[in-house]
Amino acid sequence: MTAFDTAERRRATDARPVITELIDEATIQSIAEQAWISLVGEEEVLVPLPAELPADVLSSWVDVVGPWTGSVVLTTGRRTAEELSRALLRDSAPPVLDEEDVVDAFGEIANVVGGSIKATLPGHSALSLPSVGASPEVRNASDVCRIDLLWRGEPVAISVQGALPALPSSPDPHHPADPDRSTYENEVPL
C-alpha cells in the first residue's frame, strides 16, 4: 500500500486531519529560522540540506493537544545540542555545561518552535512544557512533516509528528502502533 492510498482512505473514513494538510516544510523552515535568530544569535543561518544525524542524538519536544495532536520534535547530535545550549546562554554559559543546562536550553528551543507551529494550526490547542530525551516514536508515517537543516555544518531535524497511530482501516506497515512503548516512557528523567 502506498502512502497516497493510506491518506486517501483515511480521509474517506475520518475527519481527523494529518499534519501535512495543516503545515508545509517552508513554514516550518521559516519558523525555525526566526527561532534561531532570536535564541541562538541574530546572525545564525539554517541551511535546508539533509545530512545524516550522528549515532548519539538528543531530542527536545513539546506536545500540542487540540484539533491536531502530536509533538514538535527537534533532534540533533548530543554535542550539537550542547553547542546550541551554549549559544543560547551566551555570556552566562558556565565553563562546563551540566545536563540540566542542556535540558533547559535545548528544551526552550523546542518550546519556542512548538509555540509558533501551534499558532499556525486551526482552532485552539494547548502546549505542554518541553521534554528532552530520546525522540517520541513516529506513530503514523503519513502524519509527519519533517525538515532537515544544517546549523554550523551540523544536522538538525525538526519533525512535526502526530501522536496517534494510523486508524485501523489504514494500517501503516512501517510503523506499527506499539502499545508497550508510549511517548513518555522514552523521556529521560530530568
Binding site: R90, D104, L129
Partner: peptide
Amino acid sequence: DDSRAMRRIVSSI
C-alpha cells in the same frame, strides 16, 4: 520564566 536559559537571556537584555 521556567527556563533558566530564557531567564538569563531576558535578564541580560
